[in-house]
Structures are given as C-alpha cells and as structure tokens.
Design a binder for these strands. Structure first.
Lengths: 220, 220
DNA sequence: CTATAATGTGACCTCGCGGTCATGTGACCG
DNA sequence: CGGTCACATGACCGCGAGGTCACATTATAG
C-alpha cells in the first residue's frame, strides 16, 4: 500500500507518477524496471518516491489495485446481454468486454500482465493467487453450465478449465501485441475483421469443447 | 559463437560449463542470469569464461545451437508412423515426439524457452526469427494438407496457424511446468493419464479446426 | 633447456541498481 | 513572530553486475 503522503498528493501529481510507473513496467517488466527512470520521468526526487512507496513492489501493487478498481468500474455498468445465456455466449461476451477494457487501457494491462503472467510464472506468489482466482471463476462457470444441462456432465472439468484459460490468455496477448502496433488500438479491436477473427477463435474452441467425453472415448 | 579456446577444451570441461549455464538460464532467465554464478558453479575463473565466450549472449547462442543440434539428432532416427497420414495424425505424432524430447532434456528446454518465449517476447530478434520459422513450418503443413484434400480449402490459414502455434506452446509449457514437479518427468509424460490428457487437448483442437470456414459462416 | 605460444587467473574497473537520510523548504498555527 | 510538521531533495551507501587486463602457469617445439 502506498504511504499516506502519496494519498495526500494532488491527483494530478499522482497521475504523473502512476503513468511513469506504468510506462516503466510495461517497457521493462518488474526486475528490470528502474526506479531511477521512474523518478526522472515523473520529475520528482528519488527521496520523494520513497516517501510515497515502501519499495518497488509497493508501486506495482498500487498499479494492480488501480487496474482491479478500474475493471470493476468498467464492468459495473455492463450487463450480460440476456439472463439465460448459454455458457459459450456468456464467455464470448466476457471475452469481448475484456477486449474493450484492455484496448481502453493498453499500457496498464500490458504492464500488469507482463509482470504477473510472464515474470510471475517463475517467481510469483501474487501470480499464484491471481491464477487460482481465474481458475476458480472458470470452474464455477463450467459447473453451472453442467447443472443447467448445457454441457455433458461427463466432460473433464479440469481440462476444460485449462483450455479456456489458455484461450483467454492467448487472446489477451494477441490483442495487446497486435493492437499496440496499430495507430488506434480501439478502432482495430472494434473493426469487423478483428471481431471476426476472435469469433472464429472462440468458435473453434466452443465446437471442440462441445464434444462430450463419451464421444471422445468412442472415437479415439 | 564460442571462441576457439572453448572448442579446444576437453569435452568434460565443456560439459561442466554448459550445464552450469543451462542451470543458470533455466533458473533466472537471461537478464537476471549471473556470469559470476556460472563461473562459480563451473569452478573456472571469470577471466577464463571470457576467453571462451564473447559475452552473455554468446553463451546463450551456444546453448541454442546445442539444443537445435540435439533436436535434429533426436528426430533423425524417428519416422512418422505412416507415409500418408492425415495432418492431424502427423501433428499428434510431432507433438508427442516433441514431448519425449523435452522430457529427456527438461532443463535445457526450460532455459531456452524461458529466454526465447518469455523474455524474448519483449526484446527479442532471436525470438522473432524463431517465431517466424515455427509459423512457416506450420503454414507449410497446413497448405500441404489442403492440397491433399484433408482440409477445407476455404479455411483461414493464418487463423489455423495461430491456433496450432498456441496449442504447441501451451502443451510445451504445461509439460515443463507440471512435469518438473514430478520425481520422474519422463515417467510422468509417458503415463497413460498424461497421454490421455494430451490426446484430449489435441482432439478438442482438431475437432474445432475441422469445421470449415463455410460452416462457420453459415452458423454464426 | 630455452623460447614461444596458448590457457588460466582473480584483482580490479565502471556502472547502475534499490534504498537511506540529513538537511532544506514552506504552509499553517498560536 | 517563532515553532511545528508534512513534504522535497539529491548526495550518498553498499552491492553485484558485466567486463578487462597484467601476470602466472602450462604445453609445445626446436
């Protein structure tokens, strides 16, 4: 958690510092991110930085909190198109809303996901928590779908979770990597071509997953 | 390329140094890998290290060469089970043979893939080359399959390549991450349970991909 | 045995890192 | 006005990094 001193700062100054940190983490990841560069980019003294944050991890946590908060804010107004959707429709909706959010905050998302999923893979506790949360969410979704009779109950849940997780990460990575090359990432994300590509990806996944366990056993 | 001095070394010594480098890169990635630790683990002087290699990148390139060479060696004796396979059978075979190779050289593969795919994503030329090579290989495979009438020619090739690539990476990561937790990675990879899981993954992918473009358009 | 070339060595260099702290500054208050 | 308190500052610290180099050691050749 940032120190009180930071919270007392005028919002404008906080924003400058936050943005500098986002840029730095997005560009260099956690290990290689340099506090010297962050303070230089923010136009503050190094001593000030350490009046605001305990250490490097503390800034990063702050960014993570900000992102979470903004994501909650973003999804608060949105409602899934219809109450009794199929899981796949729901998942498609979540994916697309997520893409909208990511393209509205590309650098922020890139900074976080780079640290959490890339470096975190190798030395992270934060990552382990996040990872488990995601898996739990997906597991719930699948089990709910089974109870509603949308998915064959003999399906391998663990496997389905893995598949959905992989796809989610792959799509996020794709949107960030490809989208960042564009002049206007949001325009690119919303373009018919991109949307069609994502639809196809989801479709392939959905179609594969719909096959039941029994069918697999029978056909293999 | 390593210096001549290194090539003149007795093989045993070269192996010690190589292994130390593999351990280091596997444990820390490229940026955070320490030449001090490598020389300490190898029992050589730092000066000697710089008589063998130009710099840090040079050792890594050497490991990459070694891996490539060993992979070629490994696949040389193996033959795809039957000459006129379907692409999917062929792909399944490649995937499984790759898993065998990876579980025979887990640390080496982990070191390389960590640097190339994880860190390389963000600052790599080496990665870009490797990436393109993989994509080209997969593209060839798909186009060949189309000409042989195994795949609907209206399929989106670029999309299919993307899907196959994602799966390959996901499976490699899964095998390394999960397998490294086991006592005997090779035993784990060869176990019926693991094989079944991989079969299912490939099956989901295959089934989704088999749907033709036209069917997709019709159903969406 | 001597001359020469090839290897081995670790003290040393510079650099930038994360982090500290004594001191400066200015707004507010009695 | 003096005193206090929150905030600002940048010189400074220790560390470990990648990399160098003058010198010691060993192998080879005549």
């Amino acid at each position: 958690m940032p120190r009180q001193t930071f919270l007392n700062l005028p919002q404008e100054k906080r924003t400058i510092i936050t943005n500098a940190a986002v840029d730095e983490f997005a560009a260099y990841g956690f290990e290689a991110a340099s506090i010297n560069r962050i303070v230089a980019a923010s136009g503050i003294a190094k001593g000030s930085f350490y009046q605001y944050f305990e250490d490097k991890m503390d800034v990063f946590r702050h960014l993570l909190d900000l992102l979470t908060q903004e994501k909650v804010e973003f999804f608060k107004d949105k409602h899934p198109p219809s109450p009794s959707q199929s899981v796949f429709d729901y998942f498609r909706w979540v994916t697309k809303a997520g893409m909208e959010f990511n393209s509205a905050n590309p650098l922020m998302v890139q900074a976080i996901s780079r640290v959490l999923f890339v470096e975190g893979l190798y030395y992270g506790k934060l990552f382990a928590e996040y990872h488990q949360m995601t898996r739990d969410g997906i597991t719930d979704m699948i089990q709910k779908a089974m109870k509603q009779g949308e998915l064959d109950p003999s399906i391998d849940v663990e496997l389905a979770v893995m598949i959905i997780e992989i796809w989610t990460n792959a799509i996020t990575t794709y949107v960030l990597d490809e989208g960042m090359k564009q002049k206007d990432i949001m325009k690119w994300v919303r373009s018919a071509k991109t949307q069609e590509k994502i639809d196809k990806l989801l479709y392939v996944m959905e179609y594969g997953l719909r096959k039941t366990e029994s069918e697999f056993v029978a056909s293999s």
